[in-house]
């Protein structure tokens, strides 16, 4: 529906208007990247205590705590980022707009988080850790979580109306649900 002229104008306006939403995503990505260094805020502190307790309870091994924390932190970060993406694209849909460049950057951030999670999860398995509910299910969910947002993104490329935005928002919600399930499967 949008010609190139309208698109560029819209993009500019979107940039200005969605400053908070974009910043939220950006911060989240940064935080996830820097989470080893206890980046900031109460959210990370909560994650630390929440993840450390079950880790200490289930396993005696010293390495498990740190690594399990990393996976849990990634799960949390990806889930939160997915929900932010959903809210952001939901807002675009509410304003009757298709997904724009900035939305795709947001999707890329979320997808990278999911990819890192996939890699870390596989490294965990390679180190001999066992997910509570089975390795196959764990890997299947990791792959599904990784594929989720890109798939929705491609569909929104094919549907250049508000419904493309709704689709990506739905993709974010689905990813968040997958993250909750992943947390359970890993045994949080």
């Amino acid at each position: 529906m949008t010609d190139s002229r309208g698109h560029s104008v819209d993009t500019l306006r979107t940039c200005d208007d969605t400053a908070d939403g974009r910043c939220g995503l950006g911060c989240c990505g940064v935080r996830a990247g820097a989470s080893r260094g206890a980046a900031r805020g109460p959210a990370v502190a909560d994650a630390t205590s929440g993840a450390a307790a079950p880790g200490a309870a289930t396993a005696g091994g010293g390495g498990r705590n740190k690594v399990a924390f990393m996976l849990d932190a990634l799960t949390l970060a990806t889930g939160v980022a997915a929900l932010l993406l959903a809210a952001w694209c939901g807002w675009a849909a509410y304003r009757d707009q298709p997904t724009k460049d900035w939305h795709f950057i947001g999707m890329a951030v979320v997808s990278v988080l999911a990819l890192v999670q996939l890699v870390v999860g596989i490294v965990q398995l390679a180190r001999g850790e066992k997910p509570e509910q089975g390795t196959a299910i764990f890997v299947a969910y990791l792959l599904g979580a990784f594929a989720c947002v890109p798939a929705a993104g491609f569909m929104s490329l094919a549907e250049r109306t508000r419904w493309g935005s709704v689709t990506v928002a739905a993709g974010g919600v689905v990813l968040a649900v997958l993250e909750v399930r992943l947390y359970d499967i890993w045994g949080g």
Partner: peptide
Amino acid sequence: GPGMLLVW
């Protein structure tokens, strides 16, 4: 339109 969401 909405059909895309349905497909998703």
